[in-house]
Simulated assay, not measured.
Amino acid sequence: MQLNPVLAGPDPDIIADCVGFASKPAATIRWITGDIEHTSKENITQHSNGTATIWSQLRMVPSLSLYGKEASCVISQPDGMFDKRIIFTFTNIQFAPESFNFTVGRNNEDPPYIKCNANGNPTVYYSWTRDTVPHDGVWVKSNPLYLSDKDVETDGLYFCEATNSIGKNSQSVFIYKDKGTSHNAHSGVYIAIIVLQALLIITGVGVYFWKKRTSESRDPGL
């Protein structure tokens, strides 16, 4: 059983392959996907030694809601000679980062920090920028963003950019310190999430096909 990386989208695509090699008699393959609609296509190759290999392709809509769901490939032979069920999770739906959330915390004597998190597949990487030139009191260890305990100006509007191979997205957050709170307290840093339209950029093949379809739809000769 093999999962195929696919971009999230509204059109059906080949999500997975399931193969039964060189059985005699030939096996059959069926997919169990619960209430999620699917179709499949099977191909059988007969070998000179009398065995047969069956290959089935699972086709589904690669929606974001499919990510993390379970399904099964079941390979069987007549009269119960062989029956094997392979359970798997859809971890191959790829999508640009989305659904930001921020965490504020502190570890022992380390400076307070704010951590940026976003859903995305494959792996998401983060970078921080500020609306003004960064001060010495702010530094980044990739993610999270650390804020100095010293009496320096760290208040301001910050931008977290989340990036993976599919695209990137960004969200802004305003950070300020409560000057009257002890530096040893976790509540010494307060944040206010500023709800702005996030910037979403999809890269690669998706943009190419979108432009191609748009140009074709506008072609009066079609």
Rank of each mutant, 00 (worst) to 15 (best):
D17L: 11
P78C: 05
I175N: 09
G50L: 08
K141I: 09
E70T: 11
K115C: 04
Q2T: 13
C73D: 04
S65F: 06
G206F: 00
C18D: 03
S23M: 15
S23Q: 08
T203L: 02
I44F: 04
P112G: 04
Y208R: 07
L196K: 09
A192D: 12
E42W: 02
D151P: 01
G206P: 01
M81I: 11
L157W: 01
K177V: 01
S148W: 00
E42L: 06
A71R: 03
E70V: 07
L64Q: 09
H186M: 00
R106D: 02
H186D: 14
N43I: 10
S217M: 12
S187G: 11
D149C: 14
D13P: 00
D149E: 15
V133S: 15
M81S: 10
N184R: 10
E216L: 15
D131Y: 14
N117P: 03
T163M: 02
D11K: 09
I14W: 00
D11N: 13
I114D: 06
V104T: 13
D83L: 09
G180P: 04
S48R: 07
C18S: 10
P12F: 06
S99H: 06
I193R: 11
V195W: 02
T163K: 12
S65C: 05
I86D: 13
D151R: 12
A16G: 07
A162T: 10
E216A: 15
T214M: 08
Q171M: 14
V140W: 04
Q57V: 01
N101R: 13
E109L: 15
D219G: 00
I75P: 02
G206S: 07
H47A: 09
P62K: 10
S170H: 06
K211C: 05
V189S: 01
A96F: 01
H47L: 09
L145M: 14
Q77L: 08
L64R: 13
D35E: 15
E153T: 13
R85M: 08
S72V: 11
V74E: 14
I201V: 15
C160L: 03
N108H: 04
D131V: 13
Q94V: 06
E42I: 11
I175S: 05
I114E: 12
K179D: 12
F82D: 03
P12V: 09
V74N: 06
I201Y: 00
I32L: 13
N108P: 07
S76T: 15
R218T: 03
T45V: 13
T132Q: 14
E153P: 11
E216R: 14
N121D: 04
T45M: 10
S65W: 03
A96G: 08
G156E: 07
V205C: 08
Y146N: 00
Y113E: 00
C18T: 08
I114V: 15
F82I: 06
P12C: 07
V207W: 00
R213K: 14
S65H: 05
S215A: 15
A118T: 10
T33P: 03
T33E: 07
K179T: 09
V140I: 03
V189Y: 01
S165E: 02
F100V: 08
G188V: 07
K41L: 10
I201T: 14
R218D: 08
I191R: 11
I166M: 06
F159M: 11
S187K: 11
I114H: 11
T39Q: 06
T132N: 10
A27H: 09
Q57M: 05
N164D: 10
I191G: 06
N119Q: 12
